[in-house]
Structure formats: C-alpha cells, structure tokens
Amino acid sequence: MTTDHQKMKLEVLPDKNLFVFPEGMSQENLDAAKACHALATQSANKLYNAINDPRVWFAHYIFVMSKMGWSPTNVDVLKVTESNQRLEISNLLGKGLQTAYGAFTGDLATALEGLGKTVVSALAASANNVELLGRTTSENDRTEVSLNRCEYSSEGNMAMAVSAIQTDAKPDKTANYLLAKWDSSGTTNFACGAVLEFDARQYEKLRSAVEGKLDASALEVLLALDI
C-alpha cells in the first residue's frame, strides 16, 4: 500500500465526510470510495441513531459497504474515555484509525495518532475553511464525523481505513468550526473503525445504481487541501 513519504490530499464532502488519499490514486477509485461511503452512511443514518446505537449503526454501515464490493477486516467500535484529559475531535479520529488497523506498535501507531491531528490542523489553518458545525441544528447536542484514509498498491488494488466517530459532547457556541473546542467532560464518545478491501469488479456491477441513489450534492467537494 502507500508509503509515508507520498504526498496526501484531503477533501471535505457534505455531512462531515473527510477523505485522505495519496497523489496518484485514480479518480475512478476515489469516486467509488466516496460514493459507497456516502450511500452507506445515509442508509445507516435513516435506520439508526449513531449516538444512541453506535455499534448497530456501524454494523449496518459495514453491511451496506460489503454489498457494494468492500470486504471488511478489523471491524470494531471503541468507547473512548479519557480521565483528566480533554478529548478533541482529532483524538477521536486517530483512535478510530487505530481501531481500524487492530493491533499496532511503533511507527504505525504514531502515524495513525498523528493523522487526525494533521487533518484538523490543515482545516483550521485553511483560509477557505468550511463551517462544518451549524450552531442551530441538531448538532447542538451531538457530533458525527468520518475520516476515510484511502490507499492503493502498485498493482492498483485499493483499501480504505474508516474512522467514524460519534460524541454527545456539546460544541463551544463561541467557535465557528467543528474543529474548534467542545466540552467533552461527562460525555459519551465512540470511535468506530474498519479496514475495507475494494473489489472493483463487484462494484462495477452496481455503480450506476449506487450513483443513482445518492443526492446530487453528496459527492460535492467542499474543500480540497494538500496535507
């Protein structure tokens, strides 16, 4: 799969879907990843409350992804509690990626922990930052966001590590962005993770149907950054 020295790009899609992928990945593969993820997320959201039933929500997400050609490994949902430490979105995103890869040590652990912080820092520093958290919506009492790290091999095979996080933490009303501070004391936080291996042939049979079910704006790129 991809190596650490490769340049990575970040795209922000509607519904707080974040995609990190290496330069050189085909647009066809990236579009497939984004379309499947968006549809599986929409399907899970219609049936389950991600905050109240995160394990059931993520199980349904994985089920839908598998039907579209994504074989899951290391699927897990981690309830995250940190005593005497302020949890932030970047921490939870990193923990979701760690959960996705299962047991890990050394450089891989450091890289996964740092990716969430890198993404949040890049978004916060961007002059064209996207306001991801509306102050007058249902997000006043909960937050959901996903970070999808796409990889590909020299043979063209693709995989995606998914970190889907949910928290009932309340946002800081004085801040404009999800990436700013929020109060995590006494909250419930979950980090869902999985690695998904892509079967392009299976997806190709369903591609038209998948794209047809998506809202017109589901794959709109709200913000693109080099990281």
Results as ranks from 00 to 15, higher is better:
residue 190 F to V: 07
residue 214 L to M: 00
residue 156 G to E: 09
residue 102 G to A: 01
residue 18 L to E: 02
residue 181 K to Y: 15
residue 158 M to T: 04
residue 124 A to C: 14
residue 165 I to T: 13
residue 120 V to Y: 08
residue 121 S to I: 07
residue 139 E to F: 05
residue 134 G to N: 06
residue 189 N to P: 06
residue 85 Q to W: 02
residue 132 L to S: 10
residue 211 E to Y: 10
residue 75 V to K: 10
residue 160 M to I: 12
residue 205 K to W: 00
residue 117 K to P: 00
residue 107 D to F: 03
residue 11 E to T: 12
residue 53 D to T: 12
residue 24 G to L: 13
residue 169 A to C: 14
residue 3 T to D: 11
residue 212 G to L: 03
residue 24 G to E: 10
residue 164 A to D: 00
residue 163 S to H: 13
residue 164 A to W: 07
residue 90 S to W: 08
residue 45 N to G: 05
residue 65 M to G: 02
residue 202 Q to E: 07
residue 138 S to F: 09
residue 4 D to E: 10
residue 49 N to V: 02
residue 45 N to C: 10
residue 220 E to T: 03
residue 86 R to P: 12
residue 130 V to P: 04
residue 84 N to R: 15
residue 152 Y to R: 05
residue 21 F to R: 03
residue 185 S to T: 11
residue 153 S to A: 13
residue 201 R to C: 05
residue 211 E to S: 01
residue 185 S to Q: 11
residue 225 L to P: 00
residue 133 L to P: 03
residue 82 E to F: 13
residue 222 L to Y: 04
residue 102 G to R: 06
residue 94 G to F: 08
residue 71 S to D: 10
residue 47 L to G: 04
residue 71 S to H: 10
residue 190 F to P: 00
residue 209 A to E: 06
residue 28 E to T: 09
residue 67 K to T: 06
residue 151 E to H: 08
residue 176 N to E: 12
residue 38 A to Q: 14
residue 49 N to Q: 05
residue 92 L to M: 10
residue 172 D to S: 13
residue 12 V to K: 08
residue 148 N to G: 09
residue 214 L to N: 01
residue 52 N to R: 07
residue 96 G to L: 02
residue 224 A to Q: 12
residue 124 A to K: 15
residue 111 A to K: 15
residue 216 A to W: 02
residue 9 K to R: 11
residue 43 S to M: 01
residue 198 F to G: 01
residue 127 A to V: 15
residue 199 D to M: 06
residue 191 A to D: 02
residue 141 D to V: 12
residue 203 Y to T: 02
residue 203 Y to I: 05
residue 160 M to Y: 05
residue 207 R to K: 11
residue 10 L to D: 04
residue 149 R to P: 07
residue 218 A to V: 09
residue 16 K to Y: 01
residue 128 N to D: 13
residue 86 R to K: 15
residue 74 N to V: 10
residue 6 Q to M: 12
residue 142 R to N: 07
residue 139 E to G: 03
residue 185 S to R: 11
residue 42 Q to D: 11
residue 113 E to R: 07
residue 20 V to M: 00
residue 66 S to L: 08
residue 211 E to K: 07
residue 207 R to A: 08
residue 183 D to H: 13
residue 79 K to C: 12
residue 21 F to Y: 15
residue 113 E to G: 02
residue 33 A to W: 08
residue 3 T to Q: 12
residue 3 T to S: 10
residue 19 F to Y: 14
residue 209 A to W: 04
residue 135 R to A: 06
residue 180 A to P: 06
residue 84 N to H: 15
residue 164 A to T: 01
residue 65 M to H: 03
residue 9 K to P: 00
residue 88 E to G: 11
residue 98 Q to S: 01
residue 99 T to Y: 03
residue 179 L to H: 12
residue 139 E to H: 05
residue 76 D to A: 12
residue 124 A to I: 14
residue 34 K to D: 13
residue 27 Q to E: 14
residue 179 L to T: 15
residue 35 A to T: 14
residue 170 K to A: 07
residue 193 G to D: 05
residue 191 A to M: 00
residue 43 S to E: 07
residue 102 G to D: 04
residue 107 D to M: 04
residue 205 K to D: 06
residue 7 K to L: 14
residue 105 T to P: 03
residue 207 R to V: 01
residue 65 M to E: 07
